[in-house]
């Protein structure tokens, strides 16, 4: 009986954790994959894997980076058998246009389309920094890069975004 109660409590804690983190995890998976359906699937699979591996999560305060790492691995694993030589960004943008243009001002839709057009190497550190609040050191650790490499990618990412969005870039550094 005690085992059952403990099991129920464990499951309730895990559900609460998933519930709290799910919006951010889904957003992260969406910007990673640029496909809402794939993002939903990756998050679903991530939660199943996390449930099975939850004993390896020593500190619930560190749950978000733990989940994000699983999402990245899960997404990468998804495409181990299905690699595309080229990605048709126009098709990706078109297929998610209702989401990208949802709500709010037109300039946000334009910015979302521009984020879709960033290369993976630039988009991922940018999303980790802006959306997930990661520091440069945390991004470097997550992506196995040097701090300098992360900063260069973040700089290039914003530089490209600003150009794609028609910002005044005359006073930008080279």
């Amino acid at each position: 009986m005690n085992d059952q109660a403990a099991g129920n409590a464990k499951r309730a804690r895990f559900q609460a954790l998933c519930q709290a983190l799910r919006p951010d995890l889904l957003r992260f998976a969406f910007w990673l994959s640029r496909d809402h359906s794939v993002a939903e699937d990756v998050v679903q699979e991530t939660m199943l894997r996390a449930w099975k591996a939850q004993d390896s999560l020593a500190d619930e305060a560190a749950a978000k980076p733990w989940f994000l790492t699983i999402i990245r691995r899960e997404y990468a694993r998804t495409f181990e058998r299905k690699r595309f030589d080229t990605v048709d960004v126009d098709a990706l943008v078109a297929s998610e246009e209702p989401l990208l243009a949802a709500e709010e001002a037109q300039d946000l839709a334009e910015l979302r389309r521009a984020v879709f057009r960033l290369p993976d190497d630039y988009r991922l550190p940018l999303v980790l920094q802006v959306l997930m609040g990661y520091t440069t050191a945390e991004i470097a650790r997550e992506l196995d890069l040097s701090n300098a490499a992360v900063l260069t990618r973040l700089f290039r990412a914003r530089q490209q975004l600003r150009v794609l969005c028609g910002e005044n870039t005359r006073s930008d550094p080279e």
């Binding site: 919006p23 889904l26 957003r27 969406f30 910007w31 809402h36 993002a39 209702p98 989401l99 990208l100 949802a102 709500e103 709010e104 300039d107 946000l108 910015l111 979302r112 984020v115 999303v127 802006v130 959306l131 975004l161």
Partner: peptide, 14 residues
């Protein structure tokens, strides 16, 4: 603007 653009509410939008 970038922070608002990335913080898309996917469940509501979809």
């Amino acid at each position: 603007r970038l922070a608002r653009a990335l913080a898309i509410d996917l469940d509501a939008a979809a």
